[in-house]
């Protein structure tokens, strides 16, 4: 699959610090040279006091713990591109606003929907299906069985988005594609960079 001339030889690459991450949202830690001893001199007392600020933080954390779009983004943004030595997050193929999650209501074991819209770097990308397939496999491996996964090309981002969407939605074709050793190998390679 590694061809001599990639479809897009010069994609725009995002810096790792530009990618959306959970740490960005929550980080209030200071960074200057004057903050060297912050952890020593401003740490909360060693006893746990439920009535203080820390208790409140813990509660916020619990509410924050539900499976959300950011977590799904973290799962799939680390998938490698089949052509370039970059991840889908860095190439901006996967974007946080394009992940739509409908969490299960009331019953945590109820049905949930995940819709991921991918944006190929160019609109005639021949590997869009492979990328979609890898994202699907990754989510199937990482999400519980009550999550229904839907992968699509973002509207207008691909010349043949209808066809690609159809292929990705067809369970039979997905299963058949994964049976294919070459394709399976490519997908495995793409998923090697996923850590958790």
């Amino acid at each position: 699959m590694q061809r001599d001339t990639p479809d897009n030889a010069n994609p725009t690459i995002l810096n790792v610090s530009q990618l959306p991450s959970r740490a960005q949202k929550r980080s209030t830690a200071r960074v200057g040279s004057d903050s060297k001893y912050d952890s020593v001199v401003l740490s909360s007392p060693y006893w746990s006091d439920a009535s203080s600020d820390d208790g409140q933080e813990a509660r916020e954390e619990a509410a924050d713990d539900a499976l959300d779009e950011q977590e799904i983004y973290d799962l799939i943004s680390t998938v490698s591109d089949p052509e370039h030595p970059h991840t889908l997050g860095e190439l901006n193929v996967v974007r946080l606003p394009d992940i739509h999650l409908t969490p299960p209501r009331d019953n945590p074991r109820g049905l949930a929907n995940v819709l991921v819209e991918l944006t190929p770097t160019i609109n005639h990308c021949s590997l869009a299906t492979v990328i979609g397939l890898a994202v699907r496999v990754r989510l199937e491996q990482a999400l519980p069985p009550n999550y229904r996964i839907d992968i699509r090309m973002k509207e207008g981002s691909h010349a043949q988005d209808d066809q690609v969407n159809k292929q990705l939605a067809d369970k039979e074709r997905v299963a058949a594609a994964l049976e294919n050793d070459t394709l399976g190998g490519v997908v495995d390679n793409m998923l090697k960079t996923c850590v958790l």
Partner: peptide, 18 residues
């Protein structure tokens, strides 16, 4: 383990995926 991937706590989900 597949069910554990839907645990309510993030760290537990990470461990479940591993």
């Amino acid at each position: 383990l597949a069910l554990a991937c839907g645990d309510a706590v993030r760290e537990v989900r990470q461990a479940a995926r591993l």
